[in-house]
Structures are given as structure tokens and as C-alpha cells.
Amino acid sequence: MTTIREQASRGLKQGDAFTITRTFTERDANVFGEISRDMNPVHYDERFAAAKGLRGKICHGLLVGGMITEIGGQIGWLASGMNFRFRRPVYFGDTVTCVFTITEVEERNRAKAEAVLCNQQEKVVIKAWLTGILPGQTERTILAQT
């Protein structure tokens, strides 16, 4: 069991934060493109990326933004809304750190969170605002067993 899952099984509260890091590869983008059917040439063609003013091909924004789902899955977050602000491109070989912070917990475990994703130069590449439902006691017991 991961430390993120362990914390979730004990219960989550406002201010809890989780951090993960991932380096993105061209293979990641190719697989994501096949699954999502997003074949925008900015992800596959150097010439097209250059014509857009980029220094090379870039990762799909939702591939990078998907880092929040790794954390959400570990804590048993049931998403009801996600809002992304894509600030900078992520190039193949970039390492991105995602900090996911629970900003509000309401009655019936409804919650809000913010995620800030930064590249290896500590520049924000994505900001996200999330709404969802945190696991209740029964779900936390099951999380502890998985």
C-alpha cells in the first residue's frame, strides 16, 4: 500500500497535500494519442511544432494533467468536476511534479482541491481546480485492505 493510500484510509481533511513526480516520454504521448485519438501534429511533427513557435514536439495537456488522477485514484476521490489552466508546454523528457492539495471539505465528504504541476525548472505548467467526494468510513476501510 502506498503512503498516499495509507493516509486516505485514515481519513482526509482540508490542507492534506500529496506530491508525485513523473518524466514524460514520446512513447507516453504516442500511447495517449492512440487512446484519446488526439492526433494534433503538435505532438508528432517537429515542423508543425516549430510553426506554432515551440522548441519541439509537446506532450498532450491532458496526459500531463492526468497526473491528478494518479493521486485521486490512490485516495479514492470520486471526481465531479475538473478545471484546467494550461500555462506552459511540456516537452518530451521534462519531469513534472504535481502537488495536489485538499482545499475544502464539506458535509457528506464533498471536497475541493487544487493541483499545481511544475516542470523541472519549477515553472508552473498546469493549474487545476477539482471537486469531488472523499471516501467515507466504509470506503476507507476497504482502502486499508487494498
Rank of each mutant, 00 (worst) to 15 (best):
F48N: 05
E70V: 10
R110A: 09
G72V: 02
F100L: 03
G76Q: 00
I71K: 00
R108E: 15
A79N: 11
T95H: 13
C59M: 14
L62V: 15
E46R: 13
K112S: 15
G66M: 04
R47D: 15
H60Q: 08
K112I: 06
G73N: 11
D45F: 12
M82V: 08
G53D: 12
E46Q: 14
A51G: 13
A115E: 07
R47Q: 15
R85P: 05
R55M: 10
S80D: 10
M82A: 11
E70N: 09
E46D: 14
G81H: 12
R110H: 14
I71C: 03
G66Y: 02
F92C: 05
T103Y: 07
T95S: 15
C98Y: 00
E104D: 14
A111D: 10
I68R: 01
V105F: 09
L54I: 07
C98P: 01
F84E: 04
W77Y: 06
A115P: 08
R110D: 06
V116H: 11
K57F: 08
N109K: 11
E106N: 13
G76V: 00
P89I: 01
C98V: 02
P89G: 03
T95R: 15
L62G: 04
A50W: 13
G93C: 10
F100A: 00
L54C: 10
A115F: 07
R88M: 07
R85Y: 06
K112E: 14
E107V: 10
G56Q: 12
Q74N: 09
V90D: 01
N83S: 11
G61T: 03
W77M: 01
T101K: 03
E104Q: 15
D45R: 13
R110P: 05
T97D: 06
E114M: 10
K52E: 14
A51W: 11
S80R: 11
I71T: 04
E70R: 09
V64Y: 02
R110W: 11
A79P: 04
G76C: 02
